[in-house]
Amino acid sequence: MLKKLKQSKIKFITILSSLFLALFISVPIICIVTHTTLSALITSILSEEIQFAIRLSLGTAAISTIMCIAISIPAAYALARYDFFGKSFVNTTLDAPLALPPLVAGVSLLILFGTTSFGKALADAGLVLVFTPLGIIIAQFFVNVPFMLRILRGTFQGINPRYEHVAETLGCTKAQAFWRVTLPMSKNGFLAGSIITWSKGIGEFGAALMLAGATRMKTETLPISVFLNMSCNELNLAIAAATILIIISLISLFVFERYGGFTRVF
């Protein structure tokens, strides 16, 4: 009897703490969305500034995601399939941006592209990264590429190389075997990786702020817009930008849960 009571006490306390946690997370989010009236929200979303921020965010995140995919495919494949000298060094280095505070990543990018002769050479060649939308893309790429890499590496590792071997005996070159067999088998990994990278790209603030700055209607992505408008007390605009960020992250969370199963990657 006593034992049962004790057990139910533990049950009660643990369930209560999980409910409390859920409440603590959902209430602030609901607060943002319900802070203004619906019509004010819609007006703000339709304003030129927020429209610009939406387009800039979606665009830069899409481009940086494509860049992440393009470089991660070969790199992840090598890390999954081959043993080579310095492999563990490469693995550790590629994980570094995960641990680095984005703000610090942004500062280091700013120093690289803004002060070194390498950065100057790039700028002379027309690739101006400092305080431009291009810088946003590079910042997103730098911070997010480890996610894509880890997901694809895990995906490739999960595919038995014998599939490629069979394809080779069926007349494929190594490249064809990869293209015709491994890539289609990695579909879910690509989907999960793209969604994570893209939605993290949209939310990227620290690194982009340092490298690309916060210039209204120039490098104003959605998070930067929240920041700028909060600073100048334009609460409605800030909330509009924040609401869109919430919607995007909820959608990507849903898609990720649905097609993911990639928790082991982190």
């Binding site: 038995n160 014998r162 599939y163 071997h165 069979v166 394809a167 080779e168 005996t169 069926l170 007349g171 494929c172 070159t173 067999v181 289609p184 088998m185 579909k187």
Partner: peptide, 18 residues
């Protein structure tokens, strides 16, 4: 392998699932 004209069937079949 592709030029050897030798066919291979693995013990776990390795059919392309897609």
């Amino acid at each position: 392998p592709r030029e050897r004209n030798i066919g291979m069937v693995y013990q776990d079949y390795t059919l392309f699932p897609f």
